[in-house]
């Protein structure tokens, strides 16, 4: 996608898996923090394994993770200008859902 005049956000706070576990533990309850951590771990492991198989993940309201096959192409070392062949590969892309985009742009 073409991305004209983009700037990074200046906010350096970061949410990690630990905070997600904390949220699950506090908001849902009925299990220990260790169990909450195991569930969160399983969710991400399952997503990773599925993508590794080349299968896409569709999370409604959030977005889709897609595995795309890229053919090999001629690239250039931006430093030296030297031509190099970029090998064929599989890459993972994320396409945010319209719902998520709307919620970020109220």
């Amino acid at each position: 996608m073409n991305t004209p005049n983009k700037t990074r956000t200046d906010d350096f706070r970061t949410m990690t898996k630990a905070e997600i576990v904390e949220n699950v533990y506090e908001r849902i309850g009925g299990f220990s923090k260790k169990e909450a951590a195991e569930v969160v771990e399983l969710v991400f492991d399952t997503i990773k394994e599925t993508l590794e198989r080349g299968e896409k993940i569709k999370i409604s309201g959030f977005g889709n993770f897609l595995v795309r096959q890229k053919n090999s192409r001629i690239g250039r070392n931006p430093q030296t200008g030297e031509e190099i062949t970029i090998s064929a590969r599989r890459v993972l892309t994320f396409k945010p859902s319209q719902v998520l985009k709307n919620s970020l742009n109220p």
Binding site: T3, P4, N5, K6, T7, R8, T9, D11, F12, R13, T14, M15, T16, K17, E19, I20, N23, V24, F44, I47, K48, F62, L92, F94, L100, S103, L104
Partner: peptide
């Protein structure tokens, strides 16, 4: 949780998976 974090402009980083951040477009 991830959506809330992004809404506040904060990054989300999941080790071994990847990270999400907000990019502002003019």
């Amino acid at each position: 949780s991830m959506e809330e974090s992004l809404k506040h402009g904060a990054r989300v980083e999941i080790r071994g998976f990847g990270s999400f951040e907000i990019r502002n477009y003019k």
